[in-house]
Design a protein around this nucleic acid. Structure first.
Lengths: 346, 346
DNA sequence: GCGCTTCGACGAAGCGCTTCGACAATGACC
DNA sequence: GGTCATTGTCGAAGCGCTTCGTCGAAGCGC
């Protein structure tokens, strides 16, 4: 591999000049710059990342910590959807690239990784996915003095910037949308209890939004939680629909259970949206793939990822004070919600 | 951050001694080792990755190139399932870690990435996903003289090792399984035409396996290909089931279309497996999430990933000559296949 | 034409680590 | 008791780059 010295020799300049041509940190005459650039091209020169990191104490690398804990049966953990993770990664990587950073992928099942990467200056900053309300990793990260962006909303962000989905806004939006169509009784088919326990924050915020808007709009709210198991889903659906005053709209915030919900509705001969409105909170491709294409509120994972990458770089550039950003909820109407059936409007 | 010199001073030894304690490349007395290790612990010392890379010309990093080309509408490309990519990543990362390597994540939508990483010695080896039959990236990789493991089977591997799923074996296994149950007419609901064009190799190999075993077992084969669009899926299903001699079993090698296939079967009031056997080629969680839990042949993406990581490291250690490994197909019986209905057995 | 600033390029000192050769100290052997 | 390996440690030379201080040359005003 060609070194900066080869380039300098070929261009007839000092190595420092080559360095300045590349970094643009000092003025270089047009003629010299041209010669150097030509030499770089001719030699197909690429600066040695390690040497650069050593000399400049910057790596131009972002470390991304994703939840990849594997279950015994080799399938991924159920409560964090892999699609969402991937969307998220797909948001971080290209944005980081466009800002001049590569991405080092770490999994949170490796407790040594953070220390190694932060302590060993393998990355300039961390982006940590899936940060829990009380996250055990934060103190160690804080100690490493490495800038970090957290995805999620810990109780104590310890001075880090955070990005997250505006679950509160999503809850409000869902109810506002349905109330606007005339619904007066809405049921939530929520995420399983495990998720609730690990992510108090996001489930809480969603509930808070749902409740607040329900109160404001005069809507009755039925709350259910379920795993993806058919019997559990059936029980939740039953709670929603089999009471004296059945819900006229379902808000499904549980991707895994979604196909089963749709299945059960068909078994009950309920047409969507004529007999029952359904609103999903999930990625768009999931909403589109159901037996009835669903109106949904997206979790804009990709945008959150991109935002996190941006914030990380801004922080490194000293352009950003720690702050928390919530990415807004947006509803895509795909026709699975409409006015409630006449007999239920009363 | 503490440096190796701080450690050396504290332990009362030379920096080289510290280095040898860490690398184990020379004999060190137990007493000295203990002192050094204590100093390392006390100072929470982590070697500087860049300095190490510079001095040793090794980074202990694997670069992983994943297909993340984004569609205009921000959803991921349809023909490579994100779940499979993620499974794959989930195979590579932990295995790489356990072998002492971190993973740098590159996307194949960034044409400069490979040159930058390979040329700039940011990684010791590449693992390239989704390599096509005629892959335009290979010459550049070969030129960079960076060891690489390819996922896929290019016509000309250019001296690189390859790993891939044994699609031929999967095809044979599918037909053998169904033929063993008594089926004499089997239909394939295959991947969309686009995929076929990009991945001649894998579709071909699957077809080859299906055909070979069909011939051997005396089974009639109906081949269809479809996108996930409902009308297209309906057409494919119709081709399979509406002829004079309808197929008694479906092999579905098209995850996106799977829910729709199941839906159509229900519309036709076909019970699975009593009236029709269904065998899916897809990740297990997909098979389990259908309206009828499906017998399936897994694409063991995670295992392929782990294998790729292993091969990469083995190659770096000089323990592996270029070779192609096929990861075997395995069938998980979940009860969606059985003997064909009596009237069709004749 | 003199001193002044400004511009562009240079040289050298590290950044923190690995690795090689050198070399005491120790023990084995005759 | 002298020779010869062996073992354990040290010192120093880089690895390829950035960056700071320096300095000649050119341009300016007077």
């Amino acid at each position: 591999m060609a070194t900066i010295e080869d380039v300098a020799r070929r261009a007839g300049v000092a190595t420092s000049t080559v360095s300045y041509v590349i970094s643009g940190k000092r003025a270089i005459s047009a003629a010299t710059r041209a010669r150097v650039e030509q030499a770089i091209a001719e030699l197909d020169y690429h600066p040695h990342a390690g040497a650069r990191a050593l000399a400049s104490s910057r790596t131009d690398v972002l470390a991304l910590v994703v939840p990849l804990r594997l279950d015994a049966d080799t399938s991924l953990r159920g409560d964090v959807d892999v699609n969402v993770i991937m969307q998220f990664v797909a948001g971080v990587v290209p944005r980081a690239r466009s800002l001049g950073y590569d991405v080092l992928l770490l999994t949170d099942d490796d407790p040594t990784a953070l220390a190694r990467v932060a302590g060993g200056s393998s990355a300039d900053a961390l982006v940590v996915m899936d940060v829990e309300t009380e996250d055990a990793r934060l103190p160690a990260i804080a100690r490493s003095r490495t800038p970090a962006i957290l995805i999620g909303m810990p109780v104590d962000p310890q001075g880090f910037s955070c990005v997250d989905f505006d679950f509160d806004g999503a809850g409000r939006l869902a109810v506002r949308h349905l109330a606007g169509l005339g619904h007066r009784r809405v049921a939530l088919i929520g995420p399983p209890q495990v998720v609730l326990e690990r992510h108090t924050s996001y489930a809480d915020r969603m509930l808070h939004g749902l409740r607040a808007q329900s109160d404001a709009s005069g809507v009755d709210l039925v709350l259910t939680h379920t795993s993806a198991r058919r019997d559990a889903v059936a029980a939740a659906v039953s709670r929603a629909l089999d009471g004296d005053t059945p819900a006229t709209a379902l808000v499904v915030h549980n991707e895994a259970a979604l196909p089963t919900v749709m299945d059960l509705l068909r078994e009950r001969s309920l047409r969507v949206p004529e007999d029952l409105s359904v609103l999903a909170v999930c990625p768009p491709h999931i909403a589109e793939q159901q037996s009835v294409v669903l109106t949904s509120i997206d979790i804009p994972a990709q945008q959150i990822g991109a935002t996190a990458a941006e914030m990380a770089v801004a922080t490194l550039r000293g352009e950003l004070e720690p702050e928390t950003r919530l990415v807004r909820a947006a509803l895509t109407d795909r026709g699975s919600s409409s006015a409630p059936p006449a007999r239920a409007t009363s």
